[in-house]
Design a protein around this nucleic acid. Structure first.
Lengths: 100, 100
DNA sequence: AGCCCTATCTATAAGTA
DNA sequence: TTACTTATAGATAGGGC
């Protein structure tokens, strides 16, 4: 969608990967938000920049735990039992996150 | 991106939400795949159709467990210890999933 | 319920300052 | 580099089968 048609393969230049990530991150986040609103659905988008910085998007209706539990088709009982223990770390503050 | 500019709000009609979901799902999956390849990054996209059918995309380099563990900044040791127990259900077969 | 079409809107690759 | 611009490629809303 630019001046030139890109081949979809790993960009050679690191700085190019950063610039492209930055631009496309904005775009895909917008798409995820629009989709979640228009169609009233649960959605999770989790991605890492080339430098390793994570971005998490989830719809307004749901936390990441809820969506993943839904995906795993856990019953509420199972969910409570397991407590989605491994995901609790996601709630720890003071991380280099972008949470949306 | 169509004949008319859509207002980004919940679509009134259920059938319309389904149709729009189907179209935009294709689009956002393509974006996720392109981003993961171009920028050589980890990414997870998990979404549910209006009927509740889940779709999971993850880059070729990583499983959902790996990406989420990375996000949670678990060490390999922690990861092994916890075994990401709650996510094991994701591996169960014969679900109504689209895994990509 | 899909699957094509295409006018129209949107994202973005390079370019520019 | 940090934005901003814009020509162009890409996504999609509504319509037709």
């Amino acid at each position: 969608m630019g001046r030139v048609k890109l081949k979809i393969k790993r960009l050679e230049s690191y700085s190019n990967r950063q610039v492209t990530y930055s631009k496309r991150r904005t775009g895909i986040l917008k798409k995820a938000k629009e989709l979640s609103i228009l169609c009233d659905i649960h959605i999770i988008l989790l991605m890492f920049s080339p430098t390793g910085k994570p971005t998490l998007f989830h719809g307004e209706r749901s936390s990441i735990e809820e969506v993943i539990a839904k995906f795993a088709q856990l019953t509420p009982q199972e969910r409570a039992k397991r407590k989605l223990e491994s995901l609790e770390a996601l709630r720890k503050p003071s991380r280099n996150w972008t949470m949306i």
